[in-house]
């Protein structure tokens, strides 16, 4: 939660210095990469945008600790701390 607030604060600093739309608040570290595979329209790979942040967070944490199987996401989630996962989940929830 602390990290989340910090990253939102950084977002606000950037936003006030340059006209950034709220919808495009700078993504927290790692989150910008998600859209390489995940799209609102994709069929095989799930849409991850605009969902409940807690649900996304617990899915990512389950990938991270191996309790939920996946082909690739288990390997990727291990690269992020709990705080980072919280920030990513919160940011994804604000995206369309």
């Amino acid at each position: 939660m602390k990290t989340l607030r910090t990253s939102l604060a950084i977002g606000l600093i950037v936003a006030s210095a340059a006209p950034v739309r709220a919808a495009s608040a700078p993504p927290p570290p790692g989150a910008a990469s998600c859209s390489g595979c995940h799209a609102a329209t994709s069929q095989a790979i799930p849409n991850i945008y605009g969902r409940d942040a807690d649900a996304t967070r617990s899915t990512l944490l389950a990938f991270r600790n191996g309790s939920m199987p996946a082909t690739v996401m288990t390997r990727i989630a291990k690269g992020f701390s709990e705080d980072e996962i919280g920030s990513i989940a919160a940011w994804l929830a604000t995206q369309k």
Binding site: S7, I10, I13, V14, A17, A18, V20, P26, P27, P29, G30, A32, S33, C34, S35, G36, C37, V72, I76, G79, F80, E84
Partner: peptide, 27 residues
């Protein structure tokens, strides 16, 4: 992934701010 990181950094730099250290993914 690098393109999106670079864009964020440029927006920060143009605003006189320091870019946030990124994390990137490749698959």
């Amino acid at each position: 992934a690098q393109a999106k990181t670079c864009a964020s950094a440029i927006v920060a730099l143009l605003a006189g701010a320091a870019p946030t250290p990124p994390k990137l993914i490749n698959t």
